[in-house]
Simulated scan of single mutants.
Amino acid sequence: MKAFLRNFGLVVLILGPLGACGDLPRPFEGAGREGDPSLLELRDTGTVRVEGGDDLPEGAAAHLARAMARALRSREIPAYSDSAQGGDYILRPNVTAELIETGASVDVTWVLMRPDGLAIDTTSAHGQLAQDQWFAPTPTGPEEGDLAIPEELVDKVRDLGGITQDPEQETYDALVATSADKIAYMITGDRSALRTAPVMKVALVDFDGAPGDGDTALARSAGALLQAKGIQVDNADIGDHSVILSATTQVTPIDKSKSKTPADRVVIEWVIMDVDGNELGQMTQNNVVPHGSLDQRWGTIASLAAQAAVESLEGALGQIANRKKWLLRGDNKTTAAR
């Protein structure tokens, strides 16, 4: 399956050889809290450093980066492209281009990243550049000094100075406009334009492989925990605004030579998919339990495993909702979600 660029992978609480352990710990308690799922959460609005593309001529790359910086500034996000330093966020274009008779056909995928290189999200756009725009000279004038010049002020200064809009600049501005809207939304989380946005629904499907009542218990616990966080669970109406959460469990006896206490290793792989089966996020739990303890009833172990999974995957669900411009929660949030 084609994985989303920022698939959420997390291996949870892998225990060492049992021979060195005393009593077995409560399985899955705290599992899923290691690592830092908050890495996928966005900070408050900060400056954005827009980079030039490596797959464009130097002049075209500079014009594209400047156009995106202008577009973000017009959306009240401080952005610049004339420096390779700083930035609370880095915005990098990956460009695929095909030369055509009139110039070039381009596909631009913008990757929003943190300064440490963590990719947050992506958005793509398609357009065409005329031959003189594809081979445009590198701009020599300085970029606007004020990172947050309102668009209406820029237009007023241009009019007073008798400056006409550069057709070349207009083309690049049009190429980045839709992507800039999505990037601004990724950064600010401003949902003012999304009041009628659909609410994400999570369907719990294909819980499989667990002995005893494990599959039913895991699904029931995960559903209850998602609903407690204000996330809608709906297995009956799986549609365009649904994602699917599944869990595959494997329980295998641990080699007796490696443990003084008979035990089973339990591996649960949680996967988020879209309705077409494309993987959007995943995490794996790996733990041990006393041998045979899950052959019939899972009890609190199902609750602990589901709690760890939901806490870790909540960030991934939020990112999926942001990318698709859905609401993760409806207006009627639960107390726990608030």
Rank of each mutant, 00 (worst) to 15 (best):
V12P: 00
P57A: 06
I100K: 02
T178G: 03
L327K: 15
A197P: 03
E101P: 00
V310G: 02
G318L: 11
D132G: 01
R73G: 07
V106Y: 01
A104C: 11
T171Q: 14
L204G: 06
V233Q: 03
Y172E: 00
G209I: 08
V310A: 00
R70V: 02
A193L: 10
D240S: 15
T261E: 06
E279D: 03
E98M: 13
S124F: 07
V111P: 00
A247D: 05
G315C: 06
G52C: 04
E152C: 05
T252Q: 15
A148K: 06
A61I: 00
T102Y: 08
R338P: 00
L313H: 01
G59A: 08
H63S: 00
D208T: 10
A305M: 07
A148H: 03
M113R: 11
Y172S: 01
T102E: 15
S293L: 14
A84W: 12
D274S: 05
M113I: 07
P139N: 09
F135G: 00
T248D: 08
A174E: 15
P93Y: 04
S83C: 12
A97C: 03
E144T: 07
Q296G: 01
A177V: 04
D234T: 02
E152A: 11
T249W: 03
G52M: 04
L225A: 07
M200N: 01
D155N: 13
I163P: 02
D215L: 07
L328T: 02
D190C: 11
T261C: 03
A65P: 01
H291M: 09
K2V: 04
A67P: 01
Q296H: 10
V271E: 11
T178L: 09
N278A: 10
D54P: 01
D82R: 07
I77S: 01
L147E: 06
G9C: 02
T109V: 15
L147T: 05
T261P: 00
A321S: 15
G46L: 15
D255R: 12
I272H: 01
D44P: 03
A306R: 02
A104G: 12
R66F: 08
S293R: 11
G223R: 10
A79L: 02
V157I: 13
T102I: 10
W326I: 13
L40V: 06
A337D: 11
E170M: 09
S259K: 05
A148S: 06
S246N: 05
A125Q: 12
L99H: 05
D255V: 12
D82V: 07
P78Y: 07
W298A: 02
E51M: 08
P167L: 11
L118I: 15
L5N: 12
Q133S: 05
V154A: 12
K256Y: 05
S124R: 13
A3E: 12
D55L: 10
N278V: 09
I100N: 10
